[in-house]
């Protein structure tokens, strides 16, 4: 930062020009540090580059890290320098030369930090718009959908068409399930997506708040009860990825994890066919596909009604309560 431009105070005890030394060392160390962060560390930045969104986050983290490096080096260098050279000499009980302020330094500092901060905000916004929301959950009406095709058809999907693949992520205490509306609406405990195809995750919850975190895909979206939360991703590498719950959801939050898989498009299509067949028996028992589910107002069968069971809601709130009081 700009502190090193401080003009020497009147109380300089030696002929050493601290400002010039500090500025030089700072610039040299910063250049080395920035190059190391950007070029050596940058390609290995988390969360990796397995999807367009993850890659944009890795780039973003690299840029922020590169900008942060001179700041960290500057402050540490300055305090280190102060402790090395500006210590009280033994027996010296006098005060140092007073310095109440320095308009030039203060103005430079304020202008410099403001410029960095505003530039970061602009850069962050650009990085948010470009990769379609950067993998973050955008609520029911996503705004940032650069390059993402619309959800044109709810019942069919083919690769490369102007129709995005939809995967519903359902959080419940304490497991994730995944529903594929465009392949007959089957639901499964496995998450599989095709490579190089835009995917729209519709994240919702059946009970409390969870958070769907597909780490290597760079996707994180809270699963809220009664709310659809959309996040986009385009995976670019095939292989396994971790899915974790990222919002404290009760006793088994810590073990609410899964392994997902990115497959080739043909492999994915074959998988949907087999899974739809395997799950056919249970698919017809599922409620019709919807963006949110309200399990407290289920249409239950005769037997359950005769037993006085009014819904799978735990009976805390009376199901006869009006929906909009």
């Amino acid at each position: 930062m700009a502190t090193e431009a401080l003009t020497p105070g009147s109380g300089a005890r030696s002929g050493r020009n601290d400002a010039a030394w500090l500025l030089t060392i700072w610039i040299v160390l910063s250049i080395i540090g920035c190059l190391l962060v950007a070029l050596v560390w940058g390609p290995h930045m988390p969360p990796g580059r397995a999807s367009v969104q993850a890659a944009s986050q890795a780039t973003d983290i690299t840029v922020l890290g590169t900008i942060a490096t001179p700041v960290v080096i500057g402050v540490l260098l300055y305090f280190g320098w102060a402790l090395a050279f500006w210590r009280q000499q033994p027996g010296d009980e006098t005060d140092a030369a007073p310095l109440h302020g320095n308009v030039k330094v203060q103005t430079t500092w304020i202008a410099g930090t403001s410029a960095i901060v505003l530039a970061l905000a602009v850069y962050g916004t650009v990085e948010l718009i470009n990769p379609a929301g950067a993998g973050a959950g955008q609520g029911p009406q996503p705004v940032f959908r650069n390059g993402m095709p619309p959800a044109a058809s709810a019942t069919s999907w083919a690769p490369g068409t102007n129709n995005i693949l939809q995967v519903q992520v359902i959080g419940q205490q304490w497991a994730w399930t995944f529903r594929y509306p465009q392949f007959g609406g089957f639901e499964t405990t496995q998450l599989v997506i095709p490579v190089n195809q835009p995917v729209q995750f519709n994240v919702t919850s059946l009970d409390v708040i969870h958070s769907f975190w597909a780490y290597t895909l760079g996707v994180k979206a809270d699963a809220n009860p009664g709310v659809n939360n959309v996040a986009y991703t385009t995976a670019t590498v095939t292989g396994d990825f971790q899915v974790r719950c990222d919002e404290l959801c009760g006793i088994w939050h810590g073990s609410m994890y899964d392994t997902g898989q990115v497959m080739s498009v043909s492999g994915f299509l074959a998988w949907t066919k087999t899974t739809a067949a395997t799950m056919a028996g249970v698919t017809k028992m599922l409620p019709p596909y919807a963006l949110t589910y309200d399990p407290t107002t289920l249409n239950l069968g005769k037997v359950n009604a005769a037993l006085g069971l009014t819904g799978a809601g735990g009976g805390y709130y009376n199901p006869a309560d009006p929906e909009q009081p």
């Binding site: 419940q172 009970d207 009860p225 009760g250 809601g313 009976g315």
Partner: peptide
């Protein structure tokens, strides 16, 4: 390896997942 029940059987709790469902 944790195991649990997926029936919301904690009656009297929101979503039926409190009480016995959340207690080892």
């Amino acid at each position: 390896y944790r195991w649990q029940c997926f029936v919301p059987c904690g009656l009297g709790y929101v979503d039926g997942n409190g009480g016995p469902m959340s207690t080892p």
